[in-house]
Design a protein around this nucleic acid. Structure first.
Length: 164
DNA sequence: GCCAACGTTGGC
DNA sequence: GCCAACGTTGGC
């Protein structure tokens, strides 16, 4: 994956939604707690500083894209893996051989409205882009999306919700 | 609360 | 290396 890419991250708004990111110091937070190798690899190997990131609310009513963020750091070691008090603690990780890395994410702007999963599924332009999010059984919490999806979803957010 | 999908673990 | 059991994710 050599070309500049765009990304989508999932978060549960009850624990950490886009408003939490927006309220973080410098609107930036370490994207800690990712404990899936493929998602880690995207952060460690493929994310570049400045890449756009769609911030998606999962386990929400309704689920959907809430805001736009960007990659704000090079990858670095996720310290929570060493912390027995953390829910992200990984007993198999050692300082010598860390398992988990992360990047910082910075909020760029909230979308004027949530673009729901249902809308994403129904959009013919996005269908062409084959977003991993929309594939059956997609559970990754960090995944690539086509660059063009960013502008498309922003345009959707700028127009009224269907049925509104 | 249900359940499909999928990742991880661990016995063999 | 296989694969059954188990845990988690996440929409509904």
């Amino acid at each position: 994956m050599s070309e500049r890419s765009a990304w989508l991250v999932k978060s549960e708004p009850e624990s950490f939604g886009f408003s939490h990111l927006w309220a973080s110091p410098k609107r930036t937070t370490a994207w800690e707690g990712v404990r899936n190798y493929q998602a880690r690899n995207y952060m460690r190997d493929d994310m570049k500083v400045g890449d756009p990131v769609l911030f998606y609310h999962s386990v929400a009513s309704p689920p959907g894209v809430a805001g736009l963020a960007e990659v704000a750091s090079e990858p670095y070691v996720d310290a929570t893996q060493f912390d027995p008090e953390s829910s992200y603690y990984d007993p198999k990780a050692t300082q010598e051989a860390p398992r988990w890395q992360l990047v910082d994410l910075r909020a760029v702007r909230a979308l004027p409205r949530l673009v729901t999963l249902e809308e994403l599924r129904n959009d013919p332009v996005l269908a062409e882009l084959d977003l991993p999010l929309l594939r059956r059984g997609s559970r990754l919490s960090v995944m690539p999306v086509a660059f063009e999806a960013i502008a498309r979803i922003e345009a959707m957010a700028a127009s009224p919700a269907p049925g509104a």
